[in-house]
Design a binder for these strands. Sequence first.
DNA 1: GTCTATACCACGATAGAC
DNA 2: GTCTATCGTGGTATAGAC
Lengths: 242, 242
Amino acid sequence: MATPAISRLQRTPDSIVEKTVEIDTKSRILDAAEELFMEHGFEATSLRLITTAANVNLAAVNYHFGSKEELFQAVLTRRLDPMNQDRMQLLTAYESVSNGGALTCEKIISAMFIPALKLARDHQQGGKNFLRLLGRAYADPAPFIRQFLSSQYVEMIVRFRAAFARALPHLEREEVSWRLHFVMGALSYTLAGTDALKMIAQFHPEEIDNDELLLKRLAPFLAAGLRAPVQSGDTHQWFQET
Amino acid sequence: MATPAISRLQRTPDSIVEKTVEIDTKSRILDAAEELFMEHGFEATSLRLITTAANVNLAAVNYHFGSKEELFQAVLTRRLDPMNQDRMQLLTAYESVSNGGALTCEKIISAMFIPALKLARDHQQGGKNFLRLLGRAYADPAPFIRQFLSSQYVEMIVRFRAAFARALPHLEREEVSWRLHFVMGALSYTLAGTDALKMIAQFHPEEIDNDELLLKRLAPFLAAGLRAPVQSGDTHQWFQET
DNA sequence: GTCTATACCACGATAGAC
DNA sequence: GTCTATCGTGGTATAGAC
């Protein structure tokens, strides 16, 4: 049913050429998988669809990646890892400028958001939707995804939690952890939501850069939340009143 | 392979008995499906697992609900619909007490959270995790889920957006919509996250009521975010600096 | 080392007998 | 209403060609 692969038919000298002009099988799979995962999600994307789009054999995925799950992780790592590196570098740069003084919440948040925006912009094709894929993965119940993201984020979370703790010295460490968790949750959900894009379209149909608009509205919201006063007493004032 | 159903073997007079002491097939499927969906998510739960647990035939699901997707919707509706009704009633009650005056953000938020907490508490088995299932569904990319939740929430969202608009008269309608979206996103994500439970366990291993603790921390965070000053200029102060 | 063909079992869905 | 049989498609494993 699938047309036989045309590439590699004219043979090249094995010993000399390591990479031909044509993209190798592994990369072709990775590119096709990224595009299809972004469009349909992990479960709804079949390996047969991916391998057909990439013009490779079905078994190639298992050979190069081991399983569909590991392919998904490879797709995420390729862009997620550089982004988190950028985030930490940016935070370090801000801190070195401040000469040991604590950063503002806005500054720390921008260190989280700017690399995400850069990612959304850099790759004209796909890049726009990659954050959506990431946000969805962040809320996925599948154990292998949660475990993977946990390991990918742990270093960044430690760094940013420390930064927020210095910015908010009046908060207990526990409260800081919670609020960082809320920030990352709101960010993930916002980026993942299809509703968000519909809302933008409703108000600004020809908005050029949706993600930037979105983050510019989210950032002040989160900064204010981070600075919120702590809930005073342990009395149950949130539950049980008419 | 599955043992034949034992119930219904001793026949009952058809015309008289409408419901026997035993729970009927439809309810058994619903209960088993809820428990398994909560544990494994929608995609990862097979109909064969559900029907085996419910002790019914595989084809019974399609007969009673039409499809796996419609079964999932039925599971959600059973608890979600009453919860949103409670939310709107509570909001109405608050508003009638305030005699036309605008409610505080905290009050409106509590009208959203209290029914959720009640749901989490009422059903000792399952109820605890239902909010997690709901939060995950809220971030699910599957079109049928998004469409379903949209229709389930639209009425509630209109009511609460109006309430927030009165509480925050200095904000444009558009900004209010965004912030309500952030609130619901943070709520959904927080309830959905497995990480959250791990964090609670880290600090309060024998915490009795996790969800209440969680919402009591989230509510002030969101209330402060709702009251945040609007981002002043249109200048790109969030992107491009070192 | 790479790639291909193919077989395997589980899945959701449905038709038709009872 | 309930059940069995069966279909098409899914992820995966492997034997063997190059």
